[in-house]
């Protein structure tokens, strides 16, 4: 479609809301993500007519029903594949994928990996609550070892997958992490996602009030969280702590936490989100609480042509070489012969 895009100046977050009742549980982290995204879209004047939300199955996947844009509530795990079709058919659209830890990493793990490595221009938000909510509380692929649930009364014996590690392993061009309750930071990361070409992946630590309450208490408790998280800022050293008195440095092959009083600032790891080599980003994704503070922010943001750009590029090149699409040219090719 070559319909002219209207920059909708002065749009309010309210205009992104639908008339459908939001049916998430009270206290669910999903509410916050929905509200922050509506705010960010409004600030950016995002055009509702050119915005599509695609989801799979699960609590988070009800998201499109609450966004007054175009949307598809798809089938379990397949949102990235559906969204890839949307983006290929019309690269001018802003296409968002909303998924969860079960939808995106268990049944849909394959599509997640391949979308990331192709660098399809999708913005993927993964709500990670480390539990299956909609099916009423079984352990998910991100649940920690030993998690006791209805399907793991003796504790889960599955080692968890770490979403950012997986995304960076697939060499995603943008990977970020935020926490549902940290509103300004969540908004910042969402804005950065909007600016990215290619696949932008955001993991949100999201609280499931009913089945996995307080799973991220260590990252959300206002008194203590700064001891347990470290904000990634491009070009700046990794410093954290309530009093910003600790840093991260590399010793041989491994990170270690140092007290700034006992170390020189020059020794600290300086974050480079634009590094072409994904190794350091992967290493950051391997920092887990409680051994380390967990990084929040943008792990990686590099430039690489998006899948849909390469796709349309090939079409333009072929058209330049072969001329306009005339059916005569399609039909009359190869060895032909006349009868009568």
């Amino acid at each position: 479609m070559s319909v002219a895009r209207v920059e909708t100046a002065g749009i309010t977050p309210k205009e992104y809301k639908t008339d459908q009742q939001v049916k998430w549980c009270p206290g669910c982290g999903d509410h916050s993500i929905l509200i922050q995204l509506q705010k960010v879209l409004a600030t950016r004047g995002a055009d509702r007519d050119h915005t599509v939300f695609v989801s799979g199955i699960g609590c988070s996947s009800r998201f499109p029903y609450y966004m007054n844009t175009y949307g598809i509530h798809g089938i379990h795990g397949r949102a990235p594949a559906i969204a890839t079709g949307v983006k290929c058919a019309n690269p001018e659209l802003d296409v968002w994928v909303v998924t969860g830890d079960g939808d995106g990493l268990s049944i849909g793990g394959n599509h997640f990996i391949h979308t990331a490595r192709r660098n399809v221009g999708l913005k993927i938000i993964l709500f990670n609550n480390r539990i299956y909510g909609l099916t009423k509380g079984q352990y998910s692929p991100t649940s920690e070892l030993g998690t006791r649930t209805k399907s793991s009364p003796g504790g889960s014996i599955d080692y968890p997958v770490h979403p950012i590690s997986l995304a960076i392993g697939a060499e995603v061009t943008f990977a970020a992490r935020a926490v549902d309750t940290d509103v300004p930071h969540l908004q910042y990361v969402l804005r950065r996602m909007m600016e990215h070409r290619g696949t932008a992946f955001l993991e949100v630590y999201q609280n499931c009030q009913v089945y996995n309450a307080n799973a991220y208490g260590w990252a959300t408790d206002r008194q203590t969280r700064n001891e347990h998280i470290v904000y990634l800022e491009h070009g700046k050293p990794l410093i954290f702590g309530t009093n910003r008195d600790k840093g991260i440095r590399l010793r041989g092959d491994a990170f270690e936490v140092v007290e700034l009083a006992k170390a020189s600032q020059d020794e600290l790891v300086v974050h480079d989100e634009k590094a072409a080599n994904p190794s350091m980003a992967f290493r950051l994704a391997q920092m887990h609480y409680p051994e380390f503070p967990e990084p929040l922010g943008i792990f990686r943001a590099i430039e690489k042509p998006a899948y849909e750009e390469l796709l349309t590029g090939q079409i333009a090149a072929a058209r330049k070489k072969e001329g306009p699409p005339k059916l005569e040219r399609l039909f009359h090719a190869g060895e032909m012969w006349k009868v009568g």
Binding site: Y70, I72, A81, T84, G85, K87, C88
Partner: peptide, 10 residues
């Protein structure tokens, strides 16, 4: 699934 998405987008 990509076909469903592409059909939605016209």
């Amino acid at each position: 699934c990509s076909v469903v998405g592409a059909a939605f987008a016209g």
